[in-house]
C-alpha cells in the first residue's frame, strides 16, 4: 500500500471518529514485532483469522520503543478505532493512564490486568500449559535432565519455568531441571545468539529436551537444539513446523483466540477480568504432522489425563506469580 493510500485512510478514520460510526478494530503489538514466531505472531494470526472470516479490516502498529506506547494508544483511540487490543504486559502502565480519557472506546489487554470500566484484561494460566509440556519433556528425555531458556527474567517467565519444572518432576521425581534466563532487559526477547549459547551450555550439562519461553530468542534455542540433535519445545504459537521432527511440541497460549474474540465482540466488548486456562482451552500443547512421530500414545494419554484433572480442578499446579516462589525450582 502506498503512503498516499494510507494517508487517505488515516484521514478517513479521523473523519469517522467525529460521527462515532462503526469503526475498525485495532491491534498494538509489543516490541518483538508481529513476526516474532511466537507471542506477537499468535496475536497477529488471531487478527488475520478475524479479517479473513469477516472480510473486515483492522488497524495495527508495531512499536519500536516504550515511549511510543501511550502515543500509539491515543492515536488509535482518537482515530475512532474500537476495540483496541494490546498484546503484552508492558501496555498496562500507559493504558491505566489513557483508558479514562476515552470512556467510549473499549480496550483489551493481554497478559496483564488493568482495572478500568472499559478494559477487558485477558490473562493466561501459563503454568498449566507449561506443566503439560514439562510432563512430555520428562517422558521424552533419556538423560533425565531437561532444561528451560527464558527471555527476560520477570515473574511471568518464572511462571512458565515453575509450571514446567512441576510437570517434569511429576513424571520423574529424580529428574534435573536446569533453568536459565537470557537477560534482565527487554533486549533479552530478541537475542538468539545468547539463546543458542545458553542451550549449548545446558546440553553440556546433560539436557536433552529444552523448552524456550523467550520470544525471538527462542528462534536461536530451537535452531541450536535441532543442530545438536536434541528435542526442543516451542512456545505461544505452534512452532512445531520450524524444525519438523525435532520440536517435541509447543506450549500453546491462545493469544490468537483472545484477539479473535475481542475483534468479534467489537464495540460491545465484554469488559472485566478474563482467565484463559486449560479448562477453557486457553493453553495447551500442540500436536500436528510435524511432531506426530515424537509423541507416543503413552505420552498423549498421560498428558490428556493430567489436562482433564487440571480442568476438573483435581490437579492444582502452583502458580509462581501468586506468591513469587516455586516448590519445584530455585531461581
Amino acid at each position: 500500500m502506498t503512503v498516499m493510500h494510507k494517508l487517505l485512510g488515516a484521514s478517513a478514520a479521523l473523519a469517522l471518529s467525529a460521527g462515532a460510526a462503526a469503526a475498525d478494530p485495532a491491534i498494538l503489538f509489543d516490541l518483538g514485532g508481529k513476526f516474532d514466531k511466537s507471542f506477537n505472531e499468535s496475536a497477529y494470526n488471531g487478527a488475520e483469522r478475524w479479517a479473513t472470516e469477516t472480510g473486515g479490516s483492522y488497524a495495527e502498529v508495531e512499536i519500536q520503543s516504550d515511549a511510543q506506547r501511550e502515543q500509539a494508544i491515543r492515536r488509535f483511540a482518537e482515530s475512532g478505532a474500537n476495540p483496541i487490543v494490546m498484546a503484552g504486559f508492558s501496555w498496562a502502565t500507559p493504558l491505566e493512564k489513557v483508558a479514562a480519557d476515552y470512556p467510549d472506546t473499549s480496550f483489551t489487554i493481554i497478559d496483564m490486568v488493568v482495572d478500568a470500566p472499559n478494559v477487558r484484561s485477558v490473562v493466561f494460566n501459563e503454568h498449566e500449559g507449561s506443566y503439560l509440556v514439562g510432563m512430555m519433556a520428562a517422558m521424552a528425555s533419556e538423560t533425565g535432565t531437561v532444561s528451560f531458556v527464558g527471555g527476560m527474567d520477570i515473574p511471568l517467565i518464572r511462571k512458565f519455568a515453575c509450571g514446567y519444572a512441576q510437570g517434569v518432576l511429576a513424571v520423574n521425581p529424580e529428574a534435573t531441571v536446569i533453568a536459565n534466563m537470557t537477560g534482565t532487559t527487554p533486549a533479552a526477547w530478541n537475542d538468539p545468539v545468547k539463546g543458542s549459547e545458553l542451550t549449548l551450555a545446558q546440553i553440556s550439562q546433560g539436557s536433552d529436551v529444552v523448552f524456550a519461553a523467550a520470544g525471538g530468542t527462542g528462534v536461536g534455542v530451537l535452531q541450536t537444539a535441532a543442530d545438536s540433535n536434541i528435542l526442543s519445545i516451542g512456545v505461544d504459537a505452534n512452532q512445531n513446523y520450524l524444525h519438523p521432527g525435532q520440536v517435541l511440541t509447543s506450549m500453546l497460549k491462545r493469544v490468537d483466540n483472545a484477539v479473535y474474540d475481542a475483534f468479534t465482540q467489537g464495540e460491545a466488548l465484554e469488559t472485566g477480568f478474563n482467565v484463559m486456562g486449560v479448562a477453557n482451552e486457553g493453553v495447551g500443547y500442540a500436536l500436528d504432522e510435524f511432531n506426530a512421530d515424537l509423541v507416543t500414545a503413552d505420552m498423549q494419554a498421560a498428558v490428556d489425563a493430567a489436562a482433564a484433572d487440571i480442568a476438573a480442578g483435581t490437579l492444582a499446579v502452583h502458580d509462581y506469580s501468586s506468591d513469587e516462589s516455586c516448590p519445584a525450582l530455585t531461581f
Partner: peptide, 12 residues
C-alpha cells in the same frame, strides 16, 4: 555461523 539469520541490533 554463530546464528542462522539476522536480527535487529544483533552486533549488540
Amino acid at each position: 555461523a554463530l546464528q542462522a539469520g539476522f536480527v535487529k541490533d544483533m552486533s549488540a
